[in-house]
Amino acid sequence: MPQTEAACPRHRGVMITPVQQMVSSCTGAILTSVLVTPLDVVKIRLQAQKKPSAFSRGKCFLYCNGLMDHMCACLNGSTQVTQQTWYKKPLPAPFSGTMDAFMKIIRYEGVSSLWSGLPPTLVMAVPATVVYFTCYEQLKAAMQYNECCSYDWWKPMTAGAIARVWAASLISPVELVRTKMQSAQLTYQAVGQAINNTIKTQGVFSLWRGLGPTLLRDVPFSALYWLSYETMKAEVLRTTGSPELSFSESFVAGAGAGTVAAILTLPFDVIKTHRQVELGEQVITGGKKVSTSTLFLIKKLYLTQGFHALFTGLAPRIIKVAPACAIMISSYEFFKTLFYNRNLQQAQDLEVECDITLQP
């Protein structure tokens, strides 16, 4: 696997290893998850309060830890608060808004409750993000991308699209099995059995059900995101003359690139969400298979809700995607720069040692 060399001539000769890329992306993924999860936990609690029927057993809801959307199966809860699942816990009074929800959850359940539901999704999202970012960097290096060359604009798009296909394909079977496991309240020891049963009854390719709509949204998003981000990054470096982006510069560029990609891929996100929910509920209930093709869902939404239905939820999507992208890329770039400077210092020290050794 090739090492990544910084793009502009001023960086030639200094490498960032794949392991260093993995550590950088892993750290960024964890930070993103920890910082963004409370926002989605509060959103889900508000939704469960307003539409309790949507959280009855056999139903599904989307949970996002800032990196990936995950399907969660609704379980039965008892009347005892301590035994109820985190998204259905009642409080002394209903929430009147987002800030009120934050305050009441902290007061009555503790601060840790804001990170409810994080572990099962973090187990998959962090490895998938590491694969995604490392694959992107390796592909970009293999294409010999040069951020100083305007003709290389297509290379980040291509690398981002391929990396997303690879990461999504790896995580898709695990996501489908986990939804079934959670709905049946299985233990981790039953993972192998759940996979075997799914393959025997529905075939091996059933593990990738729902991958199409996921790729339909995530691949264009990744292509547009990396095109926007690398373009902004190159422009800032050209203007400032700096070798690297500062933390604030990468934060703003990441938020801007995420916003652009989120707006342009919104219809794909709507379709993907609808199909993911329907497939999740089908897996849980084991009911009769219904048509969940992309074209079928587009036609269904158009006939029942109108053309505007494909563009609903723009504001919530931007509010969730922009900060997640900003936190992820800025922390990722920060640690990449840290490793780059470390490697540069080691290279300079080695040169000094060689010069001393070669002196007569």
Rank of each mutant, 00 (worst) to 15 (best):
G28C: 08
G28L: 07
G28S: 12
G28H: 11
G28A: 05
L31N: 09
L31S: 10
L31Q: 07
L31D: 07
T32Q: 10
T32C: 15
S33L: 09
S33Y: 01
S33A: 13
V34I: 15
V34R: 08
V34F: 15
L35N: 03
L35G: 09
L35K: 05
V36P: 12
V36F: 13
V36A: 14
T37L: 12
T37N: 13
P38A: 11
P38G: 10
D40M: 13
D40F: 15
D40Q: 11
V41C: 12
V42I: 15
V42A: 04
K43P: 00
K43Q: 13
K43T: 14
K43R: 14
I44M: 09
R45S: 14
R45T: 11
R45M: 09
R45W: 01
R45N: 05
L46F: 10
A48I: 02
A48M: 01
A48R: 01
A48F: 00
A48L: 03
A48V: 02
Q49M: 12
K50V: 08
K51F: 02
K51C: 02
P52T: 13
P52V: 09
P52I: 12
S53W: 06
A54Q: 07
A54N: 05
A54W: 03
A54G: 03
F55V: 05
F55P: 08
F55D: 09
S56W: 02
R57G: 02
R57E: 11
G58Q: 06
K59M: 11
C60T: 09
C60E: 12
F61W: 08
F61Y: 15
L62K: 06
L62M: 14
Y63H: 10
C64S: 12
C64M: 02
C64F: 13
N65K: 08
N65I: 04
N65G: 12
N65P: 14
N65R: 00
G66P: 10
G66Q: 05
L67V: 05
L67Q: 13
L67C: 02
M68R: 07
M68Q: 03
D69R: 00
D69K: 01
D69W: 10
H70S: 08
H70I: 00
H70C: 05
H70A: 07
H70N: 08
M71I: 02
M71V: 03
A73E: 04
A73Y: 07
A73N: 06
A73H: 05
C74D: 01
L75R: 09
L75P: 01
L75D: 04
G77S: 15
G77P: 00
S78K: 07
S78F: 01
T79Y: 11
T79N: 15
